[in-house]
Design a protein around this nucleic acid. Sequence first.
DNA 1: CTCCTGACCCTTC
DNA 2: CGAAGGGCCAGGA
Length: 120
Amino acid sequence: MTPETSAPPLSPMQKIWHIVALIPEGRVASYGKIADYAGLPGRARYVSRALKQAPDSLALPWHRVINSQGKISFAKDTHPFQLQMSLLRSEGVQVNQGRIALSEYEWRPDMATLVLSMPF
DNA sequence: CTCCTGACCCTTC
DNA sequence: CGAAGGGCCAGGA
């Protein structure tokens, strides 16, 4: 037995939080991609729930997560939308009409590095 | 158990 | 480009 190597199992939600925390400043990633990176393909909606439920104490960069169309997913006339837009702009991301150029700002993590960063 | 709701995504028109 | 429809699946009522 090797008790010191037994790591506590990471729940799907914790995996998502872990990935989101890795998105660098000035970059964005889509809900769907986050799901893929977390080993949960096709679960974009689950990612949105995970972000909503994330405790503030984690201080996750939730504003760096947008939809696959490169747009902020909150309705344009809401406070969350305004907040997300200003947070992105404050770190140099251009937002026009709630839209972000994925070709310019999408986070493309090195998969090997990503895997190694996961606490098994 | 069923029904409804999403910080979604993809295809089609 | 935008809108519509279907798929998806965890949570809550």
